[in-house]
């Protein structure tokens, strides 16, 4: 080993060790747990533990609530990712406009929700979304829309929570997009304008291609984030009404930490891991194919 290689290893080893310790080892252990029937009886007496192979995975496939949780999570991601990214991009474009004054102030105000505590803001949003006294229904009343039981009806609970989540998270990607937008070359913009390109054409053919990689990153992170949504439904609806906001992570939490079925919960965690991995691979493939974006 040359001196250069030794130095390289000295730099890489600590990181590798940490990755091994906090990522590879727990994942392996979780996979180990997921092929056992670890339950509260194993907590009482280790001899009650049995190897069940893929038993937990087949049990999951026949559990209606798991499927419901999967479809709820999919709905959260399908509606939430475009909503959150569109909101971030829209806010970033507004902030990027030359006519806007006090930019740092707006940036701070719009970013503020991101750094607030979920529990505190969820309580406020629960009041906003209240069917009888909520500000949102009050505002809808002005335009003649009958009060909506936002969090109490199984059909409106996911959109209601998504309103809150979007408000809470859009600030982060907004800042990322602002940075990307400031890197869009002005000469290109001006050239396009001189060539007679309109607002939309400039956005589509100049702005979008230059922030493409950032957009892809935001999409990948948002998908991973929305697939792991837990705190918001936990605080706002406890997974209800009629389990319409029970997500995969919520299901896992209930099984694992509430009922101590760690075998089954680990299987859920593993399924979620594979799901996020697969989706990320697909996203990067798509991202690579449409490099012109």
């Amino acid at each position: 080993m040359t001196r250069q290689e030794r130095t390289a290893w000295a730099f890489v080893l600590p990181v590798l060790a940490i990755i091994g310790l906090v990522f590879v080892l727990p994942t392996t252990l979780a996979f180990g747990l997921s092929v056992t029937d670890y339950s509260i009886y194993a907590l009482a007496d280790w001899s009650n533990l049995r190897f069940v192979g893929v038993g937990n995975f087949t049990a999951l496939l026949t559990t209606p609530l798991f499927w419901r949780a999967l479809s709820n999570t999919a709905l959260f991601a399908l509606l939430g990712v475009p909503m959150a990214i569109a909101a971030s991009l829209f806010a970033a474009l507004l902030l990027d406009a030359e006519a806007v004054r006090w930019k740092p102030l707006w940036r701070v105000l719009l970013f503020a929700p991101y750094v607030t505590s979920v529990v505190a803001t969820a309580v406020v949003w629960r009041f906003l979304l209240n069917e009888r006294y909520g500000l949102i229904n009050y505002a809808l009343g002005w335009v003649g829309i009958a009060p909506i039981d936002w969090l109490g009806s199984p059909t409106s609970s996911i959109p209601a929570i998504l309103l809150f989540v979007t408000w809470k998270v859009f600030g982060y990607n907004m800042v990322v997009f602002t940075a990307a937008l400031s890197a869009v070359p002005t000469e290109l913009m001006e050239a396009a304008r001189l060539d007679g390109a309109g607002r939309w054409t400039r956005f589509r053919h100049v702005t979008l291609p230059s922030i493409g990689p950032t957009l892809l990153l935001a999409a990948v992170m948002s998908v991973a984030g929305f697939l792991q949504i837990f705190a918001e439904p936990y605080v706002m609806t406890l997974g209800g009404p009629a389990q319409s906001t029970t997500t995969v992570l919520y299901f896992m939490y209930d099984q694992g930490f509430k009922w101590w079925n760690l075998g089954l919960a680990s299987a859920v965690a593993f399924v979620l891991f594979l799901l996020i991995l697969a989706l990320t691979i697909v996203q990067t493939r798509i991202g690579r194919r449409y490099e012109w974006l």
Binding site: F127, N130, D149, L151, G152, T237, L238, P241
Partner: peptide
């Protein structure tokens, strides 16, 4: 009322 504990603050 058809309500959850989270609906009635």
């Amino acid at each position: 009322p058809v309500a959850l504990s989270t609906d009635i603050q």
